[in-house]
Each structure stands twice: as structure tokens, then as C-alpha cells.
Simulated scan of single mutants.
Amino acid sequence: MSLALSAAMRDALETWLSHERALKSASAHTIAAYGRDVTGWLAFLAHHHGESLGPARIGRLGITDMRAWMAHERGRGVAPRSLARALSAVKTFTRWLAEREGFDPTAILSTRSPKFTAKLPRPLSAEAAQEMLSTVEMQSEEPWIAARDTAVVTLLYGCGLRISEALSLTGADLPLGEVLRITGKGDKERIVPVLPVARRAVAEYARLCPHDLSPSAPLFRGKRGGALNPRLIAKVTETARMQLGLPSSVTPHAMRHSFATHLLNAGGDLRAIQELLGHASLSTTQAYTAVDTARLMQVYEAAHPRAKGD
């Protein structure tokens, strides 16, 4: 697809991606997705118009061009959610390019995003979460692997870690203290309390692990000693949830959902939970936590001045 881009457009795209990487601390995964989405859009436009488009030509695009691109994407099976993400990247790039080149980006920025139904996360009940931990422990006949899987899933549920964050721990983190310093998305650091049950689970794994857990090496290892593949945790979680008769929505990430929801149900502050999860936006945390209406009204009545008659 990059062959459809002019040299000036390739330079502009690379400069914008570097800008997003440096100034907005976007993750490598996000930068790669941005690059694919915008390159795909530019490639379509080149084919649509029969020529490579330079930066200045983008300013002459109209709403019909955008509609043609979106129709093309839907026609090749791109889901509304994925198309909305691509459109967001296109708009961000165009806004930046317009400021640099001095054109009016209104036609592109006014393009409406496709409608889609957001899939809210499905946390487990507190009882199901405990059953998952116990069942995960029984999936391997090798004690150290059983302890490893239990330790990882306990970190997801007990500390609200992402699977990538749990697997990024190294031998230098041993023994786990009362808090962990986690580097999450966008290289943002946060401090996460570590429950005694999580410290015990990791300590038991470290005691049984047959591999040398040196400070510079990954803490969680595969059977042959390499870094643990996250797919193995997904597989053991899938097996455990099938044994318990739980729905397919029960994934490693669902344990993180459950951590957040159970904290909020127990009276936790939403902003404090936002910090623990490492969310940049409070709205993300709100979508993350499944709380019934009665609980939300309790929080409202306890916190809102008007509700208390002030």
C-alpha cells in the first residue's frame, strides 16, 4: 500500500507518527495501528482518484470521498468499531496536516463515525472469581506450572494488572512488596498495592520454579525457560471457565474487570480505581466497572451535596 503514497506524503505520515510517539506518549501498538489505518485510507484515495495524493491534495477532498472510503471499508467486511477507530486516526492525522499545510480540513473532520454498540466488559461475581483462581490451580500436574498460572491470574484479579503488565515483571521484582511500580500504556507509571494473597502466590511460584529467576530476566517463564506466552494464560483461563460452566466472556482481562467492579461495589472511590487501573480517562473506568443502579444511587446520595440536602 505504501507504494501508492507520494514521497511527500510518506514523509508527512512518518513525521506525524513520530509526533504522536514523542509528544503524546502513544504506545508502539497504537502507533502501528495509526500507521495502518491512515496508510489504508491514503491507498484507497490514490486508487479512487487514479493518482498518488500529496499533502496539499488532501485539502481538496470532499465528503463524497470520505463516504466512498467508508463504503469500501464496510464492503470488505471491516466492522463498525474498527472503521470508527480508523476514522479517528484519519481525522487526527488530517487535523495535524491541515495546520502544517494551511488547508481547511472541515470536509474530513465533519465525517460522521459509524454507529456501533459498545461491548461493556462482563466481570465475574466475587464467588466466580474465587472459583476461577482455585480451578486454574488444578489445570497442570506440574506443581510449578500450576503455581505460575495461579500467581499470574491472582495478579490480574488482586491487583488489576493487564496481562502484559503481569508478564513484564522480572526477577528484580522479587520478593513482591506491599506495592508494585507498574509501567502501563503510554509508558505511564502507577503504584499498585499488592494484596498478601498475591504476594504469597508469587512467592510460592518463585519457590517452585526450576528456572533461574535472575533480576534482568522475566519473572514468569514458559516450560522451557523462556518468557511466558500470554496465550498460555488465556488457554488455562478458558479451560477453567469451561469446567465451571462460565461464559466465553471470562478471559484473563475479565479478571481485571472484576477487580475494578468488586472494589467499587465494596465502596471504593471511582477516581482511586482509575489510578489503580492506569486509565487516562475516568469515562474508561466507568465503562469498565459494571455496577447495578442501586449501588450507583448509594454512591450518588453519599457524595452529592443536593442529595444530602445542602
Rank of each mutant, 00 (worst) to 15 (best):
H72S: 09
E99A: 13
N229C: 07
G177R: 10
S25N: 12
F93L: 03
V197H: 13
E165V: 05
K91G: 09
L109Y: 09
M242E: 12
H29M: 07
R76I: 03
S125H: 03
S168G: 11
W16H: 15
C209N: 09
R241H: 10
A234I: 00
K235F: 08
I145W: 00
S82C: 03
A22N: 10
D292N: 08
M9V: 07
S214W: 07
F259K: 11
L87W: 02
R74K: 09
S18W: 02
A79S: 14
L17V: 10
I31A: 04
H49F: 03
R231G: 07
L264R: 09
R231V: 11
R256I: 13
T39C: 09
D187V: 03
D212S: 15
M297N: 00
A203G: 10
E204Q: 14
Y205Q: 07
G171H: 04
D37R: 11
T237E: 04
E73A: 12
S18P: 02
A290L: 02
R21V: 00
A203F: 03
C209G: 10
R231S: 10
S6W: 04
G186A: 03
S110H: 12
A26K: 10
A206F: 06
T237M: 08
L161K: 13
G177A: 04
S18E: 13
A128D: 15
R148F: 01
R148A: 00
S2M: 07
V179D: 13
M242Q: 12
L42T: 12
T39F: 01
M138Q: 15
A118W: 10
E51F: 06
T117K: 13
V78N: 05
V194M: 00
T237W: 04
K91Q: 14
R181K: 09
G226H: 08
L180P: 13
